[in-house]
Design a protein around this nucleic acid. Structure first.
Lengths: 197, 197
DNA sequence: CGCACAATTCAACACATGATGAAAAACGTC
DNA sequence: GACGTTTTTCATCATGTGTTGAATTGTGCG
């Protein structure tokens, strides 16, 4: 936590690089891109700011390093789609929760969403994420009128993410995953295959 | 748009103060609190940065001035609740859309949400907004288990706000209000009074 | 041991930002 | 028309930030 006083290489073999990356992830996840300062990240890792640059280069490079998450969205969604439309709402939700509730993945995703929500004013989310990544995959699940159904699914899933992770609204953040699936799953199913007004 | 060159008061009677406030609202709404600089606001209003301080004081003061919205949430929600639980989902949604789709109100609300989502890391939204403002009002609508139903409603409404206004997801942002009500209203109704798993 | 290399800090720069106080120009009033 | 007031800009400061290059200390290899 506190900065070191002596100069030069430290004894032992501490993986300082990993600690810096973890501190960066945490800060980006909590305060977004602009709210994160390299000095703060360095202080949280007990390290000089120059070391951050030594390892990761610019602040932008550090950010993309923090975004690196050990998850392939297509691999996660493929089995959901493969099993067909029956019960797809519940399966889809369970897959999402499985990823977001994983502590190894969550900070990277949170950093991503926070920055997309504000620093980018939604640009990438609007132009690439839903239309290119999520949309085509879900297209295999919806009965018809994909152009209406997919945004509806996206709106409920986005709301869940924001309520449960971004602002951590008390009852939503602590609700067991099974309860979330049981309560919101049917709604997703309705958006995917139900009767549209 | 461009800055003035000559000094002193301008001829005519332009309401410069209002222009500065409008520029500030727009910037806060689009880029959030941290992303907004007083210099940029001044430039957008065609004015010297010092004038912004002259009229509004600090950046924080300017921000709260930009948040001032001509809407009393209780007055909007009261009739929704007064009419009872039947069709409350649709009425609730229509009331929300009426406020958010109003161009005079939207920038202030957007600025609010963007800053709450990131600059405050959700603090106020979590501790005051939903529990204190929205929660008690909606409590008059839910059948039972308000502690579960209200967060569910909040998650869907939040998702709608994020999809339609914050990131402006294409099909959701252009969808006519009536269609939104017709498609998401029943879901809200279900969250309010339906069968919970 | 000696030496290349990696890890780490120090000191400093350039720049953007929020803020301040004084000066200039137009207005309103007597 | 003189004068106080309001509106507006200019010049400037202090601070925080990303970034850089040199200096220092430990590690590993021959």
């Amino acid at each position: 936590m506190t900065a070191r006083t002596s100069r030069g290489r430290r004894p032992g073999a501490p993986d300082t690089r990993a600690e810096v990356l973890a501190a960066a992830r945490a800060s980006f996840a909590e305060k977004g891109f602009r709210g994160t300062t390299i000095r703060a990240v360095a202080a949280a890792a007990g390290v000089d700011p120059a070391l951050v640059h030594h390892y990761f280069g610019s602040k932008d490079d550090l950010f993309v390093a923090a975004l690196e998450i050990p998850v392939d969205p297509r691999a996660v969604l493929a089995p959901v789609v493969a099993a067909g439309p029956d019960g797809a709402g519940e399966r889809l939700l369970r897959a999402f929760l499985g990823v977001w509730d994983d502590p190894a993945v969550q900070p990277g995703l949170l950093a991503m969403v926070r920055s997309l929500l504000v620093d980018d004013a939604g640009g990438r989310l609007r132009e690439a994420f839903v239309p290119v990544v999520v949309g085509p995959v879900l297209a295999g699940l919806v009965a018809d009128r994909a152009d209406v159904r997919i945004p509806l699914v996206a709106s409920q899933v986005l709301g869940l993410i924001v309520a449960r992770y971004v602002v951590a609204l008390p009852p939503m953040a602590q609700m067991p995953a099974d309860d979330v699936v049981a309560r919101i799953g049917p709604v997703l199913q309705h958006y995917l295959t139900g009767d549209l007004a």
